[in-house]
Design a protein around this nucleic acid. Sequence first.
DNA 1: TTCAATTAGATTGTACACAATTTAATTGCG
DNA 2: CGCAATTAAATTGTGTACAATCTAATTGAA
Lengths: 147, 147
Amino acid sequence: MDKYDSLKLGNQLCFPLYAAGKEIVKKYHPYLAEYDLTYTQYITLMVLWETDNISVKELGNRLLLDSGTLTPLLKSMEKKGFVTRKRSEEDERVVFVCLTDEGRALRDRLLHIPEQMGRCVCLSREEAGQLYMLLGKLLNGLSQDER
Amino acid sequence: MDKYDSLKLGNQLCFPLYAAGKEIVKKYHPYLAEYDLTYTQYITLMVLWETDNISVKELGNRLLLDSGTLTPLLKSMEKKGFVTRKRSEEDERVVFVCLTDEGRALRDRLLHIPEQMGRCVCLSREEAGQLYMLLGKLLNGLSQDER
DNA sequence: TTCAATTAGATTGTACACAATTTAATTGCG
DNA sequence: CGCAATTAAATTGTGTACAATCTAATTGAA
């Protein structure tokens, strides 16, 4: 027990969070690369499958990403033919994102991925639930005191 | 309950992991920027404070980062005067990283950061412990079937 | 011993991720 | 109304992050 204990990597909660986030996203790579998708593009599709014709702003709220990340991401997905982008007519500041038929069709083709990823996660159902709950609580707390 | 439930963002364990990792690292930014440090540089210092004169390889093992990330990172930290890099004489393939006096001195100057970050995490001590344990288990499992 | 295989770092190319700034459109207060 | 403040995207610049490849050094089996 010394005065520097708080600066030891092994005593940080942040490091395993950072590392686990990175490592699990990495696990998706081989599965998603087959479909010319990245993880960020994959979760973008998830939002669109549930809510098509969504603004970039709202997409950013759901994914916790800003326009600096989303603008080039969406342009790349547009080039691949998965989405279209169209400026709103009521409010010219807003850009709506829509799925193409090909983007919609991916939903069926990617259905096997959650199952395959689930096998990489060596946690019981209860542990996974616990983890999910704690992460939600943490995320909620982090955004509470947003400046 | 429909066939696409497994592809809903809200049913993913990975998304909150990815998001929480990102968001908590973001919280460090204002504290670390004062010292011209990034989060990755900060955790690199943590390893060096505990184990000075370490190879790039071993540093990568501890931080779960590869040479593609570490090489430019260490060069930048060298330019700022926090570390030095020296090729091993016994094995010319290996590069050792050492703290400079300035890098060592940062340990005292950054001692307030873990405490300030702790206040951003709205979890009880038990919950934080639970989370830490579950993340460790998850990370351990992810690296089990490394190919 | 010798050379094929392995290893450690470095390099290249791609893709985020975000802070900070910019631009253009809209809103709302006086 | 008129214009300052706000808002949504886009842009710019910096810093990871990693797959894939490359280079040079070392190792180990025939």
